[in-house]
C-alpha cells in the first residue's frame, strides 16, 4: 500500500448499520510492523478516535506480528460504559500519514471487532493535526 502524503484529506467511509442504516467513520489506512520479527501488515483501515487516550489494536494482529505477550503485564482501561478491559503494551512501527515511527499500542482481545485498530491521543494525535469536517464528508491529517 502506498503511504499517504504528509498532508492529506481523506473521505469519510460510510458503513452499514443494522437493520438498514449507515454510519460515517473517519477511517485511515495504516500499516503496522514489528522490527524484531520483520513482519509487516497489509494496509488496514484504522479508526481515528479523539476520545481514546492511547492507540489500541486487536490481539489477533499482535499475534500475527509475532509479539510475545507472555510475561507482559496487563494494563486495564475503562470503556465509556464503565467496563474494564485488559490490554498488553508493545511498541511497534506505525506507518500513517506519510510517516513511519515507533508507537505504543495497547493490544486487547476485547476491542469491538469492527474497530481492530484505534488511533488515539498518545501515538497519533500528538503527532498530527487532525481536522474533522463531517459536513463536507472529509477529514484532514497534517
Amino acid at each position: 500500500m502506498a503511504l499517504s502524503p504528509p498532508m492529506a484529506k481523506y473521505p469519510y467511509k460510510i458503513l452499514p448499520t443494522s437493520p438498514s442504516g449507515q454510519v460515517y467513520k473517519p477511517l485511515i489506512p495504516v500499516i503496522l510492523s514489528l522490527k524484531k520479527t520483520h513482519k509487516i501488515t497489509t494496509g488496514i483501515y484504522a479508526l481515528i478516535d479523539s476520545g481514546a487516550d492511547v492507540c489500541f489494536c486487536t490481539m489477533d494482529i499482535g499475534l500475527w506480528l509475532g509479539i510475545n505477550f507472555k510475561n507482559k503485564k496487563s494494563i486495564y482501561f475503562t470503556a465509556a460504559n464503565n467496563k474494564e478491559f485488559e490490554t498488553k503494551k508493545e511498541i511497534i512501527k506505525l506507518h500513517v500519514g506519510g510517516k513511519i515511527y515507533d508507537c505504543p499500542f495497547y493490544f486487547s482481545k476485547e476491542l469491538p471487532p469492527t474497530s481492530p485498530v484505534i488511533l488515539g491521543q498518545i501515538g497519533f494525535f500528538d503527532r498530527f493535526k487532525i481536522s474533522f469536517d463531517l459536513q463536507n464528508r472529509e477529514f484532514e491529517v497534517s
Binding site: M1, A2, L15, P16, T17, S18, G21, V23, K25, L27, P29, T41, T42, G43, I44, Y45, L47, D49, G51, A52, D53, V54, F56, F77, T78, A79, A80, N81, F85, P112, P113, T114, S115, P116, I118
Partner: peptide, 20 residues
C-alpha cells in the same frame, strides 16, 4: 494490486471510546 483490509460486519454502529 495494493489492497486495504477492513473488518466485515453488517453493523458498525455503537462504538464506545475507551480511556485510561
Amino acid at each position: 494490486e495494493s489492497v486495504t483490509l477492513l473488518p466485515a460486519s453488517d453493523n458498525y454502529f455503537g462504538f464506545i471510546t475507551a480511556n485510561g
